[in-house]
Nucleic acid binder design. Structure first.
Length: 106
DNA sequence: AGTGTGACTTGGG
DNA sequence: ACCCAAGCCACAC
């Protein structure tokens, strides 16, 4: 498995409850600033296998990025359950909830 | 091999 | 704050 992929998995696993990160932020921390779409793919394909807290990942505007209704609702439910407020537009306050790790923790 | 496709991002207006 | 156009890059067909 590529280092980038492993970093992404690790970073996502390390997002604490009640905090969120954006795709671009994760990509940059994992070593490739323009790989936000790869983060998406990794999340989509490996979240189950690696027990990733996929619901703590939102886009650069703080919006729930999922279109599919069921998963979207689930994500909002999980976030609310951790104390993260999601508005009617499906947006969270990045200023308040964004997680800023200094580096990839091993 | 060529083309289309995103749970994206950024910069400009 | 919102909308749009370009850029991006691995992967599926």
């Amino acid at each position: 498995m590529k280092p980038f992929t492993m970093n992404v998995i690790q970073i996502i696993q390390n997002i604490p409850e009640g905090r969120v990160m954006t795709y671009g932020q994760i990509a940059e921390l994992a070593g490739s600033r323009r790989a936000a779409r790869q983060v998406v793919r990794i999340l989509h394909s490996l979240s189950r296998k690696h027990r990733l807290p996929w619901h703590r990942v939102v886009n650069a505007k703080g919006e729930i990025a999922i279109a599919e209704e069921e998963s979207r609702m689930l994500q909002i439910l999980y976030l609310n359950g951790e104390g993260v407020e999601v508005d009617a537009e499906g947006r969270v306050d990045l200023e308040a909830y964004r997680y800023h790790p200094a580096s990839v923790a091993d």
